[in-house]
């Protein structure tokens, strides 16, 4: 266990160092812009994975909290100044994250009374509720006109945003990594495998689920806030966009749900591909079709994700042909610890 965790630490350290160095090595705007979106989706995927991958509760409404974060940032700074150098909106991120996490608790409590498909339906509905609220509460959100955020005058515009996202991404990865070694992780896995049995042996399932939900959406909201400041304006249909929702859960399934690095790997593969598709087909709606095709291909061809599939292969080779097929959970344990 210790040896493995040292390896994990080294792996994490190398990835993080490379990511910190990145914007100081590259300074072309298009590269940094793409890096921003890669990190954004990696962070969203990681935050989603904490709930969806560990506890098995498939939320289709996380983007509602992304939008909540985006609107909090935009509305706040359309009223007060962004400070002389424009860093203030990035400094308030933790406050936005915590506020959204606390707000989400009653919602989580209601939604998490349901399981499986019903939970997915409820969270999907949440997405539409929040979008509709953004359209309707005109006094606060200006409805479909949207809210604009003053733009800062950073010397290299993308870099501070990138670093802010990197901090959130690192936090999300750290939380994911820590939770899977923690009591909470065990509780969540138990819930994923059989919630009734887990309750039977004394897992406080409701507390574990609600807490994880709140942490997960708090991080999602912080990413939404950075996005809003980066883009400079917030409209209901873009801040709470089903496509962003898909973009944040697709990497999880591509890389491997419930692993620490799977969602990251997924985002690093998918987002550049997605940007390329958008660049190639962006003007027409062919983009949507291409995206759906990628989506279907991943789910049908790689339903368990890259990392668990590789782990399976490695395990099979190591143990020869006599080994029975590993159950899903144990393969996942191995790859990420």
């Amino acid at each position: 266990m210790n040896r493995l965790s040292a390896a994990g630490l080294a792996r994490g350290g190398v990835v993080m160092c490379a990511l910190v160095a990145f914007p100081f090595v590259f300074s072309q705007h298009w590269v940094l812009n793409m890096a921003f979106f890669v990190l954004m989706y990696a962070g969203l995927a990681q935050a989603w994975n904490l709930l969806g991958g560990y506890s098995g509760y498939i939320s289709l409404g996380h983007v509602a909290f992304f939008g909540l974060g985006a609107y909090s940032e935009a509305i706040l700074f359309s009223h007060i100044g962004i400070g002389s150098r424009g860093f203030l909106p990035l400094l308030v991120l933790p406050a936005i994250g915590i506020a959204v996490a606390l707000t989400s608790v009653p919602v989580a409590w209601v939604a998490l009374r349901t399981r499986h498909m019903t939970f997915a339906i409820v969270t999907l509905t949440l997405l539409f509720v929040v979008q509709q609220l953004a359209f309707n509460l005109r006094g606060l959100t200006h409805g479909s006109q949207g809210v604009s955020v003053p733009s800062p005058t950073f010397s290299l515009y993308e870099r501070p945003f990138y670093l802010a996202l990197l901090a959130i991404f690192a936090l999300a990865t750290l939380v994911t990594w820590h939770v899977r070694r923690d009591r909470l992780g065990l509780m969540l896995f138990a819930i994923r495998d059989d919630e009734d049995k887990a309750r039977g042996v004394g897992v406080r399932a409701t507390e574990a689920k609600v807490f994880t939900f709140a942490v997960s959406v708090g991080m999602t909201a912080m990413i939404g806030a950075v996005w809003a400041y980066y883009i400079g304006y917030v409209y209901p249909q873009f801040a709470i966009d089903p496509l962003v929702m898909i973009g944040s859960l697709l990497p999880v399934f591509l890389g491997g749900a419930g692993t620490v690095w799977g969602p990251v790997l997924g985002a690093f593969i998918l987002v550049p591909a997605q940007q390329w598709l958008a660049y190639r087909y962006g003007a027409s709606e062919l983009y949507l079709i291409a995206y759906a095709a990628v989506f279907l291909a991943i789910i049908l061809l790689l339903p368990r994700g890259i990392l668990p599939s590789i782990a399976d292969m490695v395990a099979r080779r190591r143990d020869g042909r006599t080994t029975p097929r590993l159950p899903v959970g144990s393969a996942r344990e191995e790859i990420a610890s």
Binding site: L60, H116, M117, E285, Y291, F295, L296, P303, R304
Partner: peptide, 25 residues
């Protein structure tokens, strides 16, 4: 076979996107 009910949500969602895309084109 193995992945179960939740995956079907994603597959049908992707189908919805594909239809939306085809109709938009």
């Amino acid at each position: 076979a193995e992945s179960g009910e939740e995956m079907s949500l994603l597959v049908t969602w992707a189908t919805a996107l594909a239809i939306e895309g085809v109709l938009s084109v």
